[in-house]
Amino acid sequence: MAKVNMTVNGSPASGDVEGRTLLASFLRDQLHLTGTHVGCDTSQCGACVVHVNGEAVKSCTMLAAEADGAEVTTVEGMANADGSLNVIQQAFQDHHGLQCGFCTPGMVMSAAALLKENPKPTEAEVRTYLEGNICRCTGYHNIVKAIMAASGQDVGAIAAE
């Protein structure tokens, strides 16, 4: 066991972890931040995406020990200070960008990373960026639309609704 200290959603967090403890497990099991989900074991589905030092990573493919000293943001840390949905979360609700909700935390975190890097992405760029986030419910249409809307772009041209 080794002690790790990190800042999670703006607050200090620490715990004793084994070498093999994954960041996702540390967040879920020790910090009880169960918004981060684990949907595969080959680092592909993206339900576990969190931000470490501002970058999107798959927390199921990173050791908790590797995040020692890091700033970690999870979906629980995304809402506005007053608890209301942030602009990305609100766009997901407005455009029905989620159904069962399981992939949603990873989608929100990836969307936030995308918009930070590319504030006005094209639809194709959004689809490409989401290569590492699998959704089985929505067929992606409304996720793409939500992200485009969150970027402040007109989504009227994207059919349906």
Partner: peptide
């Protein structure tokens, strides 16, 4: 390579 989150690691 991989996807954006993979490329960050």
């Amino acid at each position: 390579i991989g996807d954006p989150a993979v490329r960050n690691r």
